[in-house]
């Protein structure tokens, strides 16, 4: 390579790089100004002391974090993590099956089916939730129909079952979309080949579709699990508010208790936990992709 061609080559490589940096600036600036900067305030406040009227004094203390060691908080956290996991698993299973169904339809119908999945979410969240309360409550249609058959007193409002149902409803699209996206890029001939080689339905999924759609599944897991932690209306309206989630805890601390420092401390702990889970998923993704490349290499 002569010096001139190298110069041209370098010039080409560098030019888009500088241009791409410029393109990144608005996004970075927005997140830094509207996301990171406020988070610094939250981090600072988590070490502050609340005054009697809900303001924040200048003090510096670790007390807010020390208080979190109280078993009452770990109980709420564990319950939230448990419910979040349950919701994630349910959403993933149903999201996986639904995505598989959509992908197996003719290409020109798939978009319409996806549209059908999101349209319900253009109605107000509270309106939808109250509709569920009506449907599942004792005055609703299910209770009415059961009543005709002599089964009286049907009502699952409030209950944890209703909470799981409400969470599933809210997070199903967030699970379906990423899984669908990665399933769509799987070569259909792979499935056919596996079937021709005598693999069972379960075998095809376990060996072909499931591993190949794992990036979408992991993405869906994050997008379901993390936001479940912040949910606070569903547990109150559908679940009776007896088992608060971390989201309820933070809202109570920020509003009713006017204890921002404590609320900030809970948020910071949650943030660290979520970042850790994100890192774990990232690691899992990396490992699965390296594994796949190594298998490919061995096969080759």
């Amino acid at each position: 390579m002569t010096a001139t061609t190298r110069a041209i080559h370098l010039g080409r490589q560098e030019k888009p790089k500088r241009g791409s940096l410029l393109l990144l600036i608005p996004g970075i600036a927005s997140v830094v100004l509207l996301g990171v900067l406020p988070l610094f305030i939250v981090a600072r406040n988590s070490f502050a002391v609340a005054d009697d009227y809900g303001g924040i004094t200048d003090g510096l203390t670790l007390e807010n974090y020390a208080k979190l060691l109280d078993p009452v908080y770990s109980k709420t956290l564990l319950f939230s993590l448990g419910l979040g996991l349950l919701n994630t698993v349910v959403c993933l299973v149903i999201g996986y099956l639904t995505s598989y169904y959509i992908v197996s339809r003719p290409t020109n119908r798939q978009g319409f089916l996806l549209l059908l999945v999101i349209i319900p979410f253009w109605t107000d969240f509270l309106v939808r939730t109250f509709a569920w309360i009506t449907i599942l409550g004792s005055g609703g249609p299910i209770a009415g129909i059961l009543g005709i058959f002599g089964i009286a007193g049907f009502s699952v409002i409030p209950s944890n079952l209703a909470v799981v149902l409400g969470l599933l409803y809210s997070f199903l699209p967030t699970a379906i979309f990423p899984i669908y996206a990665s399933m769509r890029s799987i070569d259909p001939s792979l499935k056919e080949a596996a079937t021709d080689l005598g693999a069972s339905w379960w075998g095809v999924h376990r060996r072909v579709i499931l591993p190949l759609s794992s990036p979408g599944i992991l993405g869906a897991a994050l997008l379901t699990f993390i936001p479940t932690m912040g949910v606070f209306v569903i547990p109150v309206l559908l679940g009776g508010g007896k088992d608060p989630l971390v989201g309820n805890l933070i809202v109570t601390l920020y509003t009713e208790f006017r204890n921002q420092p404590m609320g900030a401390a809970v948020s910071m702990v949650l943030l660290v936990l979520m970042l850790a889970s994100m890192a774990l998923v990232g690691l899992a993704l990396k490992r699965s992709s390296t594994k796949r490349t190594t298998t490919k290499k061995t096969e080759a």
Binding site: L34, I226, M229, G230, I250, S267, L271
Partner: peptide, 8 residues
Amino acid sequence: PLIVPEIV
């Protein structure tokens, strides 16, 4: 921003 509870 996705992983910070909105109220915070």
